[in-house]
């Protein structure tokens, strides 16, 4: 087993997260005693799920980098499966979906072998161009564009986008320190913290809606509060687990806050279009995997290229 990933700095951050989870669990327990309500129960359920997700994620991150890759591949698969289960689709093109699942192990093998060139072109070039062929072979032209476009969009977000999280682990320059795991932790913690902060600021101060037609619960106060909180957190965490300078960490925080919001409302728009609330019921209190990784589908690739461009 390879425990090197667990540097002191990574450990401090993990302990910090446990601290925050303990505090929020305590607060909700007190609230529940004072005035029990449906909202408090809902929040408790969510925090419980946060605990579970935290332990699964930490386990996957610190044991071994290969296990981290497999875990992220599974995450990608589960999100893609939720997406395909929700969208309307011409059943004649069923095999198109089959091939796009096959893209997941291939994409993650490129990451495993640190084959950056193929990692970056495999989905947007090869998969995008090969996928229509299956539909053409079947010969059904009704909804051809819809099928091909839906599959490509799913691959883009759920496989290409999320797999950037995994490529952070194998970025060059990890020899002396264990930069990769630190960057993954940085990105995931900030993205999730951004979601939670937006929710909390929106609940306490939110008045004016930011996108009433797409996501009626999102407010301007939530948006700005979230981005600011994320930036403060980025400045605090960056010296521990990233190579970023102060300016770099401020930009990273603003960038993750903004793009996380877009990723979130992007999936909200999809759900609104399909007239559903949650993508599945796999995570109690949160909904589906896709509800949880929606922001990551944007932040992972965008943060990755930010970090790679300026630091690697």
């Amino acid at each position: 087993m390879n425990f090197n990933v667990l540097t002191d700095e990574v450990l401090y951050v993990l302990i910090g997260i446990i601290g925050i989870l303990v505090i929020s669990t305590a607060i909700t327990l007190v609230l529940k005693k004072k005035n029990p309500s449906h909202t408090v129960d809902e929040v408790m359920l969510r925090i419980k799920s946060w605990w579970v997700m935290f332990f699964i994620f930490t386990f996957a991150l610190v044991i071994h980098s290969t296990i981290s890759l497999i875990f992220m591949g599974i995450l990608s698969f589960l999100a893609l499966k939720e997406y395909f289960s929700l969208i309307p689709f011409n059943r004649a093109h069923r095999l198109v979906i089959f091939w796009s699942y096959i893209a997941i192990p291939i994409q993650f093998l490129f990451i495993y072998f640190e084959f950056y060139g193929m990692f970056i072109v495999f989905i947007p070039v090869y998969m995008f161009l090969l996928i229509p062929i299956q539909a053409i072979i079947v010969g059904e032209t009704k909804n051809f564009l819809q099928s091909v476009a839906s599959v490509q969009w799913g691959l883009m977000l759920m496989v290409f986008g999320l797999s950037h999280l995994a490529y952070l682990l194998v970025l060059p320059g990890k020899e002396n320190s264990v930069l990769g795991a630190g960057l993954v932790l940085f990105l995931v913690v900030l993205t999730q913290a951004n979601d939670v902060a937006q929710f909390l600021w929106g609940k306490t101060l939110g008045k004016r809606k930011i996108l009433p037609k797409v996501s009626p619960n999102k407010t301007w106060a939530g948006f700005f509060g979230g981005v600011l909180t994320t930036t403060v957190l980025a400045v605090l965490l960056a010296p521990l687990i990233t190579p970023f300078t102060l300016t770099g960490s401020i930009i990273a925080g603003l960038y993750i806050g903004l793009t996380g919001f877009i990723g979130d409302v992007n999936i909200s728009a999809l759900k609104r279009d399909l007239n559903i609330k949650d993508t599945s019921a796999i995570i109690p209190g949160h909904g589906g995997i896709l509800d949880r990784v929606d922001s990551l589908t944007y932040t992972a690739p965008l943060f990755f290229h930010f970090a790679r461009f300026f630091y690697f």
Binding site: F84, S85, L95
Partner: peptide, 18 residues
């Protein structure tokens, strides 16, 4: 609902669906 998408009559290729 969904299993007819995953493994319908006449097909041997399984495709994951909820």
């Amino acid at each position: 609902y969904g299993l007819g998408k995953a493994l319908p009559k006449g097909s041997f290729i399984f495709v994951p669906f909820f």
